[in-house]
């Protein structure tokens, strides 16, 4: 043992630096990741040349949920988004094209059938569910057709899963 003073100083300084880094790098066990994943859809209308264009909804809403029903108001929006159920392999939601004139002829029922897959996020957040949409069944009051644009519903926020094409 014959450490020089400069080596001792270096060692102590580096020890304190290491200790500070250790505490600085210790991550808190807090969950900041959303555990629910949204299924996203877009509304479209075909123009005269049969090209699909975004269809802004002026006064529409969708209705979905389990024991409690939720309303998502669509004002000047061509998109919808809500999480699918993690308890069953299908959900049904309702599209009301005009909230000022709610008549059966203006309400469509849409049912999505899918597979579920449990995905681990972290020890703090636990699990979330990914989905694979297999089938869409819908009424055709104001809806012309619905296409599955992307069947995989996961953490990719830039993906549209349903293309809802409205009647002209």
């Amino acid at each position: 043992m014959k450490a020089t003073p400069s080596y001792l100083f270096f060692f102590r300084a580096m020890f304190l630096l290491g200790l500070a880094g250790f505490y600085g790098c210790t991550r808190d066990n807090i969950c900041l990741t959303p555990t629910l994943i949204n299924m996203r859809g877009g509304f479209y209308r075909a123009d005269t040349s049969n090209t699909l264009r975004d269809s802004l909804q002026e006064n529409a809403f969708i209705l979905f949920g389990g024991d409690t029903l939720y309303i998502q108001v669509l004002k000047k929006s061509a998109n919808l988004a809500f999480p699918l159920s993690q308890k069953s392999d299908s959900v049904t939601f309702y599209f009301v094209a005009d909230s000022s004139n709610i008549i059966p002829g203006k309400i469509d029922t849409i049912s999505l059938f899918y597979q579920r897959e449990l995905k681990f996020i972290s020890a703090a957040c636990g699990f979330q569910t990914f989905y694979k949409i297999n089938q869409v069944i819908y009424s055709q009051q104001v809806i012309d057709s619905i296409a599955i644009a992307t069947s995989e519903v996961n953490t990719d926020l830039n993906t549209e899963h349903l293309k809802i094409i409205l009647k002209p």
Binding site: T35, L36, G65, G66, D67, V91, L118, G126, F127
Partner: peptide
């Protein structure tokens, strides 16, 4: 045991 809180469709546990 895991729990997933879901205010819309109901919580899940497994």
């Amino acid at each position: 045991t895991y729990f997933i809180t879901d205010p819309i469709w109901g919580n899940t546990e497994g």
